[in-house]
Simulated assay, not measured.
Amino acid sequence: MRVARLMSIDTHISPFGLDKTEGEFDTLDALESESIHIFREVAGEFERPVILFSGGKDSTLLLHLALKAFWPAPLPFSLLHVDTGHNLPEIIEFRDEIVARHNLRLHVASVEEYLADGRLTERPDGIRNPLQTIPLLDAITENRFDAVFGGARRDEERARAKERVFSLRNAFGQWDPKRQRPELWNLYNGRHAPGEHVRVFPLSNWTELDVWRYIAREQVLLAPLYYAHEREVFSRDGMWMTPGPWGGPREGEALETRSVRYRTVGDGSTTGAVLSDAADNEAVLAEVATSRLTERGATRGDDRVSEAAMEDRKREGYF
């Protein structure tokens, strides 16, 4: 079993070809140890935690660390995906493959279902990422989840940089930055009133480069669209978009076959690819190390709406 091999880490090879033997402790080891500690703290403190899992690289890394945290016992949490209905098909296929491989339980909250029965209305711009909030909060309430793991990192975006590792949400699922609690010496306060829940971010202190270094070291399996591949794309607002049920290309937007990869994945109507020839982990590492834009700033149109776009959505209950 793949995870069994990953549990044996006395000796391994770094992505830069250097042998690392037992006893040495580097930045990745420290980050891994912190994340595993957070998973175990939540398991001991909460009754019904759940992991947000979309099949993207950060949630895949989150799941990898969770499996490590409790090996050889089975994972004590289920998974939750808020599906916009506008996901790239490769991501949904990968999500289902991973769930089946590890025999996990997956809850799916469908934006499409909410649109079909009138609980939500399609936005004029066709972007569905902001529509995830209500299905997410409903799923949390219906399943009585009291802790929700997310893969957000502080380096991604300004609002996410304000988050604590344990982030309290009120009975309406809303986030208030003024209610953030101090977190000293890796002590986390999970106290919450009935109806409230806590969002937990074990990857808070990781950077995009850390993520890719760890993926390369551990040989974590990712969805193939994170690596360079040829696909039909069109240029819009400085991003390379994929045509799909979400629409496009528009008049004046020409389809081209390009070598691209995705740095982050989300709603197909607003998530772009980047031109790239990086077809393996080492090449991606080199590319990320020289990038001057964050992955969300470079490829997520919904975060460009305003300077406070993400913070506004987080206050309403978004990831």
Rank of each mutant, 00 (worst) to 15 (best):
I38S: 00
G247I: 14
G238F: 08
S291I: 13
D26C: 08
D83S: 12
L52E: 03
W246E: 05
V200G: 00
Y227E: 06
R181L: 14
I38T: 03
R258H: 04
V42D: 00
A109E: 00
E45F: 04
V233I: 10
A109Y: 00
R315W: 04
T294R: 07
R313H: 10
R158I: 14
P249E: 00
F166P: 07
P72L: 08
L203M: 06
V82W: 00
P72Y: 03
W185D: 15
M1Y: 08
A30S: 10
R250D: 05
A308C: 11
M239C: 10
S54D: 02
N189H: 10
V211W: 02
R300H: 08
S276R: 06
E253G: 13
R179F: 10
V148R: 01
L61V: 15
E251N: 11
I91R: 02
E316S: 11
F94L: 12
D10Y: 14
S204P: 03
N143A: 10
N189A: 09
L275Q: 02
E295D: 10
G268C: 04
F16A: 15
F145S: 05
E232R: 15
A278H: 00
H107V: 14
E251F: 14
T121M: 11
F25A: 13
D302E: 10
V50E: 00
A298Y: 03
L6V: 11
D210Q: 06
L79K: 01
R292T: 14
A66M: 02
P182L: 10
S167G: 10
A308N: 14
V260A: 01
A216R: 12
R179Y: 07
K68H: 03
D277W: 12
E112N: 12
V260M: 00
S204M: 11
P249D: 01
L65V: 10
D29N: 11
G268P: 04
P194F: 09
E24F: 09
I134H: 05
S259C: 08
R213E: 02
F46W: 04
L79C: 07
E295H: 09
L168R: 11
D58T: 13
E311A: 13
K162N: 07
R144T: 08
V165H: 00
V284S: 01
F46M: 15
G150K: 06
A223S: 05
P177A: 07
F25D: 11
E112Y: 03
G244R: 11
V50R: 03
A100N: 09
I134W: 03
A109G: 04
L75M: 10
L75K: 04
A289R: 14
D125N: 12
R40F: 03
F172Q: 15
A43D: 06
A298D: 05
I215M: 08
V198C: 07
A66F: 02
